[in-house]
């Protein structure tokens, strides 16, 4: 009896002991966990805020650096085509126009080509080719930009000047309305060459995004269309493209962002002249190539400050483009939602 009660009480004690112990462990664990969790949350928040801080600091530094130029030239800076370090007269019109024009022409070439590649890879290519072709295109994106520049300068430009440009100047140069775009001496380098090199650099980015979004189109939709007798082109243009336009838009913007900021490849082939010229075969300049060319040797406050302001302008252009793209994508999504 006694033995029994003893054993009962012992097991009871043990039991309470165990629960007590477990409870303490849990309590300790939660306390420790909470602390760690809080630390982790704080750390991630710090990282997120840190990026924002860097962004703000960059804008502030650019603004501070460009103050002398802003004060001196004001709004005139954006519409002035002169760039004269001797007389300290600076205007950003030529580089701004050059940046926008080269990027737009690059997209004009790159987007249709990328679309074609992506459709081929997802719809038409034999399975065995998809992997190697896709990888090859992704590898193109990994080539450093200076290699593109050197290829453009040493291989493409001489070929272009010797075999294509003379023909184009002779035949298209006299056309009404667009003829002025193709005049001048065949030098091989210039705005068009820069845009062409940019297009090649942008193609892998746009293609990769397009292929990825094309792959998520439900086979059911495509097969239904094929079943109704659609051609591949009809499936691509009326099923795949409408279904993926948000993603496609995103890819195009990614390409544009890359083209706007590209420096070395453009510097090699654009001809680096601060001149506004109507012909695409004449030399021009972009914001980033001006910076790359002139920053090291810029002497004097106004000169450096004007270059910093150019940097600020590029920052703003890129920012506006990305913001516009975001708005566009949101709108498309909303409209797609309403339609559904």
């Amino acid at each position: 009896m006694v033995k029994h009660s003893q054993s009962v009480s012992r097991s009871a004690i043990e039991a309470t002991d165990e629960t007590f112990f477990n409870g303490r462990l849990q309590l300790e664990r939660t306390a420790k966990g909470q602390l760690l969790d809080r630390l982790f949350r704080g750390l991630t928040r710090f990282f997120a805020v840190f990026v924002l801080l860097i962004l703000v600091a960059m804008i502030a530094a650019l603004l501070a650096g460009s103050m002398p130029s802003i004060r001196r030239f004001g709004f005139h800076f954006f519409v002035d085509a002169s760039w004269n370090p001797v007389t300290n007269q600076f205007g950003a019109l030529v580089p701004i126009v050059g940046t926008v024009v080269t990027s737009l022409i690059a997209l004009l070439i790159a987007v249709p080509v990328s679309f074609g590649i992506a459709i081929f890879l997802t719809e038409l290519s034999p399975r065995s080719l998809r992997g190697p072709l896709g990888t090859a295109i992704e590898l193109l994106a990994a080539i450093p930009s200076i290699i593109y520049g050197m290829w453009g300068l040493f291989v493409f430009a001489p070929f272009f000047a010797a075999h294509i440009q003379p023909w184009v100047i002779e035949h298209l140069g006299s056309w009404p309305l667009v003829g002025f775009l193709f005049q001048g001496a065949p030098m091989g380098i210039g705005v068009f060459t820069a845009a062409f090199i940019l297009a090649i650099m942008v193609i892998p980015f746009v293609t990769a995004v397009m292929r990825d979004v094309f792959e998520i189109v439900p086979p059911l939709l495509k097969e239904s269309a094929y079943g109704l007798g659609s051609t591949t082109w009809e499936v691509a243009s009326s099923i795949v493209l409408p279904y993926t336009r948000v993603g496609v838009m995103g890819g195009v913007i990614l390409g544009l962002g890359r083209a706007l900021g590209e420096t070395m490849a453009v510097t090699f082939v654009i001809g680096n002249a601060h001149e506004l010229s109507s012909s695409l075969f004449m030399p021009g300049n972009t914001i980033s190539s001006s910076l790359a060319n002139e920053f090291t040797e810029a002497v004097g406050e106004l000169y450096t400050s004007s270059l910093v302001e150019l940097g600020l302008v590029l920052f703003v252009i890129t920012f506006v483009v990305l913001a516009l793209a975001k708005v566009l994508i949101l709108r498309m999504r909303r409209r797609a939602g309403v339609q559904a």
Partner: peptide, 17 residues
Amino acid sequence: AVGEGSAVNWPVGVGGK
């Protein structure tokens, strides 16, 4: 028309780096 300097406003031509 142009003047002297390590960088000037070139009236014509292409620029190499």
